[in-house]
Each structure stands twice: as C-alpha cells, then as structure tokens.
Design a protein around this nucleic acid. Structure first.
Ligand SMILES: [Zn+2]
Ligand SMILES: [Zn+2]
Ligand SMILES: [Zn+2]
Ligand SMILES: [Zn+2]
Lengths: 139, 139
DNA sequence: CTTGACCTTAAACTATACTCTAAGGTCTAT
DNA sequence: ATAGACCTTAGAGTATAGTTTAAGGTCAAG
C-alpha cells in the first residue's frame, strides 16, 4: 500500500500520515526502491488504532504511549493502559465541569437580554460583564 | 497606573496586557514622557471585562466584539450581544456533547480492564482500540 | 513519449493565546 | 551615584496538531 492508498483506507490524510511518522507514531513497514513508503495491513490497523485513540480524546503523545503497549504487549501491563485511560477520564471530567460552569453563566447572561434592535445602552450582557457579578475562574 | 500596577489590580500579566494592546483589545489611555503606558480606572474596568469575558469562554476575537459594543453602546444593539452569546452557548453545548461521548467511551474502556500487573496481552483497553468497536467521530 | 497522477523532502505556515528573552532606558531609595 | 525595580521594543519560543508549499522525482496510460 502506498501512502495514497492508506489515506483512502484509513481516512487519514497523507500529510498527516507523514506527520505521524515524523512524530514516531506510524512508521511504514518498508520503503520501495523509489523511496516510496509501503504500508502493510498491520500499518492500516495501527492507523485506525491512532484514529480511534484520538476519537477517545487521547493526545498524540498519549496515543503514542498506548501504541507502545499495543506494539509490545508482553512488555507492558494492564495498569499502564488503565492509568492512561483513568487520567483522561479525570481530565475530560474537569473540562466538562468547566464548560458546564461557563454554560450556566452564559445562559444567565443571555436570559435577560432582549436581543432586539435597540441600543445596547442597557444591555444586560454587556453590563454583567462590566460588573463583578461573574464568578471568575481562569479558563 | 503603570503596567505593573494594572497587572496587580487586574491579575493579568504585563506580558499579556501588552499582548492585548497589540491585538487591539486594551489600549492604555496615554503614554508618559518616558513612553511608559499609563492606565486609567476605566482601563482597569476594561481589563476586568476582558478577564470575565474569557472566563465565560469567549475567544479574544469574540471578546473584542463585545468590547466594541461596551465601548460605544449607543452605536450597537442588543441583538449583537445576544447573537455572540447565543453562538457561544451553542458552541459550548457541542463541545460538551463531544466530551460526554468520549467520556462514555472511555468509561466503557476502563471498566473491563483489570488494571493489574499482568501482561497487557489481553488488555481490554488495547484490544478495544484495535477493534472496530469504537464509534468513530473525528475530534 | 508525454501527460497527469502520485510520490519525495525540508521547511514554512495556520490557529490561539500567551510567555519569555535580549538589550537597553528610567525611576527611586539609600 | 549606584543598586535594584520597573519600563521599553522587536522578535522568538511554547504548545498542539496538523496543512501547505516549493521543487523535484516516478509511474501508468494512451
Ligand atoms: Zn435589550
Ligand atoms: Zn441586551
Ligand atoms: Zn488485565
Ligand atoms: Zn487491561
């Protein structure tokens, strides 16, 4: 499989596949005489693994760690995979909390604004942002 | 007020205040003979406005739009402020949905992994990522 | 045998929001 | 008068995850 084929099979752009290679995530199993990348079925599995990992919210660096486990399972233990996963769950939980807090604030802001074509002189959104009413939590 | 004072009063670093100036969000009301930035009480209010806006999840560019309304209220209408706010609510809603979907997937992944010191040969997390079980949704 | 599709590389560019450095000028207190 | 705190600028660096470009080499079909 050449890079264009893997692009179609995996749904990951050739640009990105080269980038993943540079980052050490997905090395083609060999290079042809013309120096073209040649990917195996295993490489396709790895490409999809990366895609799924990303869909779960793992960063490329975390994905690389999971990939290292996958590649050499006997040299790794469940605890490693579970720890990475657990940290991500915590992290996402915090993000959700942060977003929900913002969401509540925004909904309050929106609620009292008429949204009409009149001057923003007394706009509740603008004045709320001017006052000390909003609970300040750095993003 | 010099930049260091505004830094203390607003809790925004001097670096960031200069950056906000470069981005057109917060211009000091004047410059001293020594070219030092001089900030007024109004500038402090603006600085806090920016901070609150960011805490609500608005980007710097959205904050700039809100700031433009605040600065010249009579030339703007409620509809503008409400529209910006409404879009942000939608955007955050989508982010929360995305994160919750990830969260559910991750929790399923974590659930069946023993997390012990045994080889990752049969780790459910790794094998789930290898299989086509995970609903693929690009991040 | 040429056209067009596909491949190669290194490096620059995108986006966001800072953060820091270097080299130098100014201010305040002792 | 000199140390130390504070200010100035332009520009580079940080982080993440790509995306694109430029300049060129290779391959299959007609
Ligand atoms: Zn109104
Ligand atoms: Zn309003
Ligand atoms: Zn196990
Ligand atoms: Zn496991």
């Amino acid at each position: 499989m050449k890079i264009g084929d893997l692009e179609k099979q995996s749904g990951i752009s050739a640009y990105t596949l080269r980038y993943y290679e540079k980052e050490g995530l997905l090395m083609p199993s060999k290079r042809g005489e013309n120096n073209y990348r040649h990917y195996s079925q295993d490489d396709l599995i790895t490409a999809k693994f990366i895609k799924r990992s990303k869909a779960c919210g793992f960063s490329l660096s975390e994905t690389a760690s999971l990939l290292a486990i996958k590649t050499d399972k006997s040299q790794h233990v469940c605890a490693e995979a579970k720890s990475i996963t657990h940290s991500k769950i915590q992290e996402i939980e915090e993000q959700i909390q942060r977003l929900q807090h913002m969401q509540e604030t925004l909904i309050q802001l929106e609620k009292y604004c008429c949204g009409g074509q009149e001057s923003a002189e007394f706009c509740s959104i603008i004045s709320a942002l001017e006052q000390d009413q909003i609970i300040e939590k750095g993003e």
